[in-house]
Design a protein around this nucleic acid. Structure first.
Lengths: 360, 360
DNA sequence: CTGAAAGCGCTAACAT
DNA sequence: ATGTTAGCGCTTTCAG
């Protein structure tokens, strides 16, 4: 039982292959500087011995840990997992590992996490941060930062064009004939929320519609449910929600109150999380390119790190696209209360189940 | 612009506070060994300078990285995020950071990931691994391993009592009067699948029912959809699915084929992912304690690490509980095809929206 | 092309 | 209670 599994170090490899440790080191990190035969011999011995370079030790001297930090508000919020997955995969392809952390929506935790990561990563991906710009700029001096889903001047940012998403949603609604609209807004601290608000307002005006702002609200289904009453008393015929979770909560509360979607009120979400395909009616929503964002953010961060964080900060904005499903219809289409159940000859007939399209 | 943000090291603190570096070191890692006044002075100076110990350097000598690895099949699979979140939170409370990685369901990637993590973490959490026991035992010699959602002899395991879940589900079904049941099974390589199969078989027999096994299938909604035909031709009145995703895919396909749930066929899932509250009808399913599993797994791993991985391997099995919702009913209850739409006076009347209960 | 030596930031005996 | 010294595993001058 007791055989100590002693770790094999560069010295073991050196000894076993009859060369100096610096040659072994070079064989791994500067192969061109070592004779082909020696290199092969060393590599063979190393692999026989099961040697793997110790990254921490290497990092101590190179100053590069080959680790990245990824900070999100809530891992369990369905918006984030695809982004996390994409970032992790991309990082791994670049031979980087990633620490993932959850702030539980707290700006304070956010700050602590960045500081805790600072020394053990080469850079941090800050997703939808809630802390102040001021603080972000203070932290960027501790560790290279790339921000996702928020614009921060002077820092590399990966944005998803949520303004366009809101505009498309509103245009879809006004195009359907709606003239009294509501926006169920999200948290005040959310950059995204401001974007949506502005774009939705402009688009509504352009479409000759009036837009009620309801909120701020929690960015959760609970938040959406809580806003239902205000939506009803605003007397609108269509609603754009801050995100899908809010839209779903709202739809449930509306349904509960006997209000039919889309017959009485149309609802549009933002994000296109998998859940939005399961609601009845299926949610019309603007898809956010979270996977692309994750991949690109990692590459941006790596580039930023390689440039010693002095690059002119690139800002990438990713396209968004409205996915029209079943939760929107022309106003006043609610004469009859047709059963919602789909039959085999439905509009989506012949398609595979909706969730399958998500890869689940 | 050009002020180098030079990292502050233990030496800077030592100099600034007029003591030797080893005193600074002790002030942090063995406070009781240093005079109270000096300690306070050192700590103050350190905090003024913004000093933070370099964990990699510390780990190089202590042999403890204070990092953990967490490996799951698919970060975006809704089953995992709550577990990841819980593990991450628990680890952070213990002053540990966690690397998260995704195997994309590949046993080969799984192996590579463990090996890549081996040197830079104190231990690895292997969630629902698909690789062979043989391989797991080989890898455990490289790094302390704790397995979640699978039983591996000689290794600490955190299990969720999926056998009990299956039994409860079958008993619920036979209790409703069903006599012809089907199990839409999952992947053959899944330990969980075996457990479910065995327990479901036993429970069915005890309940005087016949159980058709359909599968193996992919553990996705696509897999569930693909199994629909087989379910139909098996002529059963109730189905237990490998997990919620499979159940949801199955329900969609059934709906698509004009088969009513639960009027014609009852469906039960396993996991209780948030999605299961959004389907119409809402899915009856057995809830898996993923949050508890995540927390406990971390503590087990930390304990295991502290014991130098020579503890007798503890096995914890967590309780599961059936959540009866709307996808199950007595057989042959499908005389009339009542519209599914809930009204204000519905069974769930007065409850907050279902998804809100999930904390979204 | 390879070896020798120094040292990354830190902790752990060992002195004092 | 504090200073000294050695060294964790590795890379990187600098010689040769």
């Amino acid at each position: 039982m007791g055989e100590e599994p002693r770790v094999v170090t560069i010295r073991d490899v050196a000894q076993a292959s009859g060369v100096h440790i610096s040659t072994v080191s070079r064989a791994f990190s500067a192969p061109h500087l070592v004779n082909l035969d020696t290199r092969n011999r060393v590599l063979t011995v190393a692999s026989d011995l099961g040697y793997r370079p110790n990254r921490a030790a290497r990092g101590l001297i190179t100053g590069r840990t080959h680790n990245l930090g990824l900070i999100v508000a809530d891992i369990a919020n369905p918006f984030f997992p695809p982004l996390i997955k994409a970032a992790q995969t991309q990082a791994r392809e670049r031979d980087y590992s990633v620490f993932v952390a959850d702030t539980d929506e707290s700006p304070v935790v956010e700050e602590h996490l960045v500081e805790a990561f600072a020394k053990q990563v080469d850079g941090v991906l800050l997703c939808s941060p809630r802390m102040s710009n001021r603080l972000i700029h203070r932290l960027r001096r501790e560790v290279p930062l790339v921000v996702v889903n928020r614009h921060v001047k002077g820092l590399p940012c990966v944005l998803m064009d949520v303004g366009s998403a809101a505009r498309q949603a509103i245009e879809h609604l006004t195009g359907l004939g709606h003239e009294r609209l509501a926006l169920v807004a999200g948290p005040a601290a959310s950059w995204t929320n401001g974007q949506i608000r502005r774009a939705a307002g402009t688009a509504a005006r352009a479409g000759g519609a009036r837009l009620h702002i309801i909120g701020p609200n929690q960015p959760t289904s609970r938040g959406g449910a809580a806003a239902a009453e205000a939506v009803l008393s605003a007397g609108v015929t269509a609603v754009l929600a801050y995100n899908d979770l809010v839209a779903i909560g709202l739809m449930e509360a509306l349904d509960h109150a006997g209000v039919r979607v889309p017959a009485d009120v149309s609802v549009v979400g933002i994000d296109d999380i998998p859940h939005s395909q399961l609601t009845r009616p299926k949610l019309t929503t603007a898809a956010m390119p979270t996977v692309a964002a994750g991949r690109i953010a990692v590459d941006m961060l790596l580039q930023f790190v390689a440039d010693d964080a002095r690059t002119s900060a690139p800002q990438t904005t990713l396209e968004t696209a409205l996915v029209v499903r079943e939760s929107t219809a022309p106003p006043g289409s609610g004469g009859t209360d047709a059963p919602r159940r789909r039959s085999a000859k439905d509009a989506t007939g012949g398609q595979p189940p909706a969730t399958a399209a998500q890869g689940y």
